[in-house]
Amino acid sequence: MDIKDFLDRMFTLGIGAAIASKEQIEKLVDELVEKGNVAKEESADIVDELMKKGKEYQSKFEASIKEKVKQTLKDHDFVTKEEFDKLKKQVEELEAQLKTKTDD
């Protein structure tokens, strides 16, 4: 397995740039350069690629978590913020109507 395949697998497992800082990734790539596993000329491209993949993974992970939370709330009949805001507005409108009728 070459180094790019190895790094791709790290992201598949949820390890890597999603939780690592750019400095940590640069350090890892520098170590790979020192060991001769990566050419110095490729190191900047690899860091950029890892950061990009990390951000993509993080976005997908966050979207997945949001969807799971939304589904859990729905499964347990919790009211969403949108539903709450809609109900709040309806109550305020009804209160205004009642006040208008009692002022007459």
Rank of each mutant, 00 (worst) to 15 (best):
Glu92Ala: 11
Glu83Phe: 01
Phe61Asp: 12
Leu50Gln: 15
Thr102Gln: 13
Val79Ala: 06
Glu92Phe: 02
Ile15Glu: 07
Glu56Lys: 05
Asp85Gln: 13
Lys52Phe: 10
Asp5Ala: 11
Gly54Lys: 01
Glu56Thr: 05
Glu67Leu: 14
Glu83Gln: 13
Ile15Pro: 01
Thr80Ser: 15
Lys74Asn: 13
Phe6Asn: 01
Gln97Ala: 13
Met51Ser: 06
His76Ile: 06
Gln90Phe: 05
Leu87Thr: 04
Asp45His: 03
Leu32Lys: 04
Gly16Asp: 02
Asp75Glu: 15
Val69Trp: 02
Thr100Ser: 15
Glu56Pro: 01
Ile25Arg: 06
Asp8Tyr: 00
Glu31Arg: 10
Gln24Tyr: 06
Val69Lys: 09
Asp2Glu: 10
Leu94Ala: 11
Lys86Ala: 15
Lys74Ile: 11
Lys66Met: 01
Gln58Ala: 15
Leu13Asn: 01
Lys88Val: 00
Gln90Lys: 10
Glu26Cys: 12
Ile15Trp: 03
Val69Ala: 10
Glu56Ala: 12
Leu28Ser: 07
Val69His: 04
Lys86His: 07
Ala96Met: 07
Phe84Leu: 14
Leu94Tyr: 11
Gln71Val: 13
Ala96Tyr: 04
Met10Phe: 02
Asp75Trp: 05
Gln97Phe: 06
Lys55Leu: 13
Lys52Ile: 08
Lys86Ser: 11
Gln24Asp: 15
Lys88His: 05
Ile3Phe: 01
Ala20Asn: 10
Leu28Gln: 11
Lys60Glu: 13
Glu92Pro: 01
Thr100Gly: 12
Lys89Met: 14
Ser43Cys: 08
Lys88Phe: 03
Glu26Phe: 01
Asp48Ser: 12
Leu50Lys: 02
Thr12Trp: 02
Gln58Glu: 11
Ala44Asp: 14
Asp75Met: 12
Asp8Leu: 05
Glu26Pro: 04
Asp48Thr: 03
Gly16Ser: 07
Met51Trp: 05
Leu28Asn: 07
Met10Tyr: 08
Asn37Lys: 11
Thr102Glu: 14
Met10Asp: 00
His76Glu: 14
Asp77Pro: 03
Lys60Gln: 11
Gln58Cys: 08
Ser64Cys: 10
Val29Glu: 08
Val38His: 04
Glu67Val: 10
Thr102His: 07
Asp48Leu: 05
Lys86Pro: 03
Ser59Cys: 04
Thr12Met: 05
Glu92His: 06
Leu32Tyr: 12
Asp45Arg: 05
Val69Met: 10
Asp8Lys: 05
Phe84Ala: 14
Glu62Met: 07
Leu98His: 07
Ile15Ala: 02
Phe78Asn: 10
Gly54Arg: 05
Glu92Met: 08
Ser43Lys: 10
Gln24Trp: 01
Met51Ala: 10
Thr80His: 04
Glu83Asp: 09
Lys81Ala: 11
Ser21Ala: 14
Phe78Ile: 09
Leu98Pro: 00
Asp45Ala: 13
